[in-house]
Design a binder for these strands. Structure first.
Lengths: 218, 218
DNA sequence: ACCTATTTTTAGACAAGTCTAAAAATTATT
DNA sequence: AATAATTTTTAGACTTGTCTAAAAATAGGT
């Protein structure tokens, strides 16, 4: 059995692994969890003894098969709860994260499977992130950051990289939601901003926004 | 903000207060929470500093107004989650307790209010216990233990005192569920057992069962 | 290859919550 | 009212998870 703290570390390492795929550094974990590097070292030792991470001093960690499964399962729960909150309890996509952070640690296989069924076995959470299946597998879809699109390319908005409530509320105000069609009208080289077409309206998008919005090209 | 542990102590004191109404003893709390008296003393000191209990050494504790509200709110959450599990997720009444023990500590007023609404503002949980309202008030209904009924009295089964899964499953096997009509056919004086009529069938009920089943007389 | 800057680990401390064993207070018994 | 039994509290220790400050290892620049 793993404590909430241990689960949070596994989850952090799992997320970091998706980007870098080599040894995950102590500092990067500390930053992600807003804690101190020394605390990370301590926890890593414990997780290593429990065989859920492989640890070589000064060279970072990576998850074992088992660690990866546990992390994926926590993420599965987090994302299913997010869908539940939005679909069944009228939460908006910018309100769900903190509550899901709590709910993801509830231990009851039946509970999460029933939630899954109640929701109709969703494949993605309200931010467009894929939901791992019971075995921890997740199918990634082919998506690109808006910032990587060229002039005249178009696609459908399928996800966000940053899911802070500030960013999500910003998108709401601009009328940008998942599923919307977006076309790049112009890329401005001097500030990397974009001019896009959404709902037949022209919109100016800063570099920062373009770096946090995922598009599935069509 | 109160920790899970603090909430559990407040809940225990709240439940014990319903029976005894004078100072709640250290030992009774320890027994309810399956912990040691020394741990209880420590926690009581902390809760006392936080002004949620009144504590006089060697003379037990009682909840303050605020402590009582916090406890009632935890119980409210526990019971609403139980209803949710049974009504929406196909849990049976003997499966909900342990999961609700976890869910009751989730901190999100919006979450629990939306759950409340989704369930249609239920007044009782699956075991017949009343659900406190948002202000911590709970209306008790007039119910009697089956063991207090006399021959030929009848009523409706409205609750259980012991909600262990063993007892609940036993009731299931006997076909005794909330809402059923029960009539006392006979009281056997030598072993305090009962002969009752339920669903037009005669059933023999031991003293122990009769002491754990609540009936609303009709 | 050496020196410096950065990262990581160690060592020691602390808070929360728990425990055991012993001391103190209360309650019950005669 | 004195003594015995029970309850409660204290004292000290342990675990988990965290921190700060210092030491050790690694990585980078010339």
């Amino acid at each position: 059995m793993f404590s909430q703290s241990e689960e949070n570390y596994l989850k952090a390492i799992y997320h970091l692994s998706a980007i870098s795929d080599k040894g995950i550094s102590t500092n990067s974990i500390a930053e992600k969890l807003e804690t101190k590097a020394s605390s990370v070292t301590d926890m890593i030792k414990k997780l290593s003894e429990k065989k859920v991470v492989v640890y070589k001093k000064y060279h970072g960690v990576h998850l074992t098969e088992e660690g990866s499964k546990i992390a994926a399962n926590v993420i599965r729960k987090h994302r299913l709860w997010e869908v539940f909150l939005v679909d069944k309890l009228n939460f908006s996509w910018d309100e769900v994260h903190d509550v899901a952070e709590q709910l993801e640690h509830i231990k009851s296989p039946k509970l999460i499977n029933q939630i899954d069924a109640l929701l109709g076995f969703p494949t993605h959470d309200p931010h467009g992130d894929p939901i791992p299946d019971k075995d921890g597998n997740l199918k990634t879809i082919d998506k690109s950051l808006l910032s990587t699109l060229s002039k005249n390319e178009k696609g459908i908005c399928v996800g966000v990289d940053d899911s802070s409530s500030e960013f999500l509320q910003f998108l709401d105000r601009k009328g940008i939601t998942l599923g919307k069609q977006i076309k790049v009208l112009e890329r401005e080289d001097f500030d990397d901003s974009f001019s896009i077409l959404i709902d037949d309206k022209k919109l100016s998008i800063s570099k920062k926004i373009a770096n946090n919005l995922y598009i599935k090209k069509t």
